[in-house]
Computed example of a mutant assay.
Amino acid sequence: MGTQPTPRSPSDDTPDAYVGLDAGPAERIARERGWSPVRSLPPGSIITMEYMEGRLNFEVQDGTVLRCWKG
């Protein structure tokens, strides 16, 4: 699967574009697009719910991004 065009800033990026990608390349692409930090979590992880501007979260299972959200 090819990479999507790089948006001007993380706020222009669509989290759904990462779903289905391999986690490693997805994290690299997210960082290139300005996301910092990028957090990868296994399904069902217990996490704090504080919103962090500029953070991208991946739910990853078997090396594949299942879900992605901002904050």
Score class of each variant (00 low, 15 high):
residue 5 P to V: 10
residue 65 V to E: 00
residue 8 R to P: 04
residue 16 D to I: 02
residue 10 P to M: 11
residue 25 P to D: 09
residue 6 T to P: 02
residue 65 V to P: 00
residue 65 V to Q: 01
residue 50 E to F: 12
residue 38 V to L: 06
residue 47 I to S: 07
residue 9 S to H: 07
residue 14 T to I: 10
residue 27 E to T: 08
residue 52 M to I: 14
residue 56 L to W: 07
residue 68 C to H: 03
residue 57 N to T: 12
residue 15 P to S: 13
residue 19 V to Q: 01
residue 64 T to H: 00
residue 33 R to C: 10
residue 54 G to D: 04
residue 36 S to W: 07
residue 64 T to F: 00
residue 47 I to A: 11
residue 17 A to S: 11
residue 29 I to C: 05
residue 2 G to F: 08
residue 27 E to C: 04
residue 20 G to A: 02
residue 60 V to S: 01
residue 51 Y to M: 03
residue 7 P to C: 14
residue 1 M to P: 06
residue 46 I to M: 07
residue 42 P to F: 08
residue 6 T to L: 15
residue 52 M to Y: 12
residue 65 V to L: 01
residue 12 D to A: 14
residue 55 R to M: 15
residue 18 Y to L: 04
residue 36 S to P: 02
residue 46 I to G: 10
residue 32 E to H: 02
residue 51 Y to S: 03
residue 28 R to P: 01
residue 15 P to I: 09
residue 60 V to I: 13
residue 15 P to C: 11
residue 42 P to S: 07
residue 56 L to M: 05
residue 17 A to C: 07
residue 36 S to A: 14
residue 52 M to W: 08
residue 24 G to N: 05
residue 39 R to I: 14
residue 15 P to R: 13
residue 55 R to L: 12
residue 49 M to W: 10
residue 14 T to D: 14
residue 55 R to H: 09
residue 16 D to R: 03
residue 58 F to R: 08
residue 34 G to E: 09
